[in-house]
């Protein structure tokens, strides 16, 4: 295995630990994942296109894409404010608020889904106030957006926090001593410094939203052509025993998420180079 040749080390256990890691990784992750691609490779091109580009699937791509984009944008905006407040300001209960930011990671998605539905349904906590004014959230595209905002919330905050922590106060002091007012310091000095982290957080939040299932299916109502997300279509096809159709859509999604993963890595590399200069 020349690809994995190591440099000499006195610590024992390299072969054992690497061999075990590769075997486990292969069995649990790589072989099952390759099953999806191999299954699709057995389909004809026309069959594949029919499965992944039917009007119902196209509508689902559109909804998943735009709802995830909107949710990630809202999270980028408010996440920046939340991270700023948590790092820079002092207020009572801050530790609790900080810990609570991780709630969407810790709360099972199905629980989030039914809770959001209970809040935004017609007779729900907020729904009964909003619906008389013509604002329908549950069982519409807006509901999908609300659920995706919830599950993507921690990413931007947690990506920005360490960067904000490490910002040198000298940077802002220098800007101020050179005559910049606070607004100029923020827009011309701080934001450019924070931008790579903000973009990373946005991309992570977007990627998570694209694949999300549990929190969305309860609040979206799952109406064909209107409020069906892509992961739901995979489930629907599986329930009809259309394994090929389900796998074909899965391959499209996997390609998109691996592309995003690559993009996030590139942003990281770029930001590291940017910081070294």
């Amino acid at each position: 295995m020349s690809l994995l040749r190591k440099e000499h080390s006195v610590l024992p256990g390299f072969g054992l630990s690497l061999g075990f890691t590769l075997a486990y990784l292969g069995l649990i992750v790589l072989v099952p994942l390759s099953a999806a691609f191999l299954k699709t490779a057995g389909m004809s091109w026309a069959e594949f296109v029919a499965a992944v580009a039917s009007p119902r699937v196209m509508a689902a791509y559109r909804l998943s894409f735009f709802a995830s984009l909107a949710a990630a944008s809202v999270n980028a905006f408010f996440g920046l404010i939340v991270a700023w407040v948590l790092v820079r300001y002092a207020f009572p209960g801050k530790r609790i608020v900080d810990a609570l930011v991780d709630l969407p990671f810790a709360l099972p998605t199905a629980v989030a889904g039914i809770a959001l539905t209970a809040i935004y349904a017609k007779n729900g906590w907020l729904g009964q106030v909003l619906e008389p004014h013509g604002v329908k959230i549950a069982f519409t595209e807006l509901g999908v957006f609300v659920a995706l905002t919830f599950i993507g919330l921690p990413f931007v905050v947690r990506t920005l926090q360490p960067v904000l922590e490490e910002l040198q106060p000298e940077l802002e002091e220098a800007a101020a001593s050179l005559g910049a007012n606070r607004w100029q310091t923020i827009t011309r000095v701080l934001l450019p410094e924070l931008f790579p982290a903000l973009l990373t957080g946005f991309a992570l939040s977007f990627a998570r939203a694209l694949g999300e299932y549990g929190s969305v299916v309860f609040i979206s109502g799952n109406m064909p052509l209107r409020t069906e997300i892509v992961p739901l279509l995979i489930i629907t096809k599986l329930e009809q025993y259309d394994y090929r159709g389900a796998t074909a859509i899965a391959v499209v999604m996997l390609t998109a998420s691996f592309g995003l993963l690559l993009l996030i890595n590139l942003i990281q590399k770029w930001s590291r180079r940017h910081h070294r200069v």
Partner: peptide, 11 residues
């Protein structure tokens, strides 16, 4: 990076 639904599907 894999959607939960796909994680089940591959098995």
């Amino acid at each position: 990076a894999v959607s939960p639904v796909i994680s089940g599907l591959i098995y």
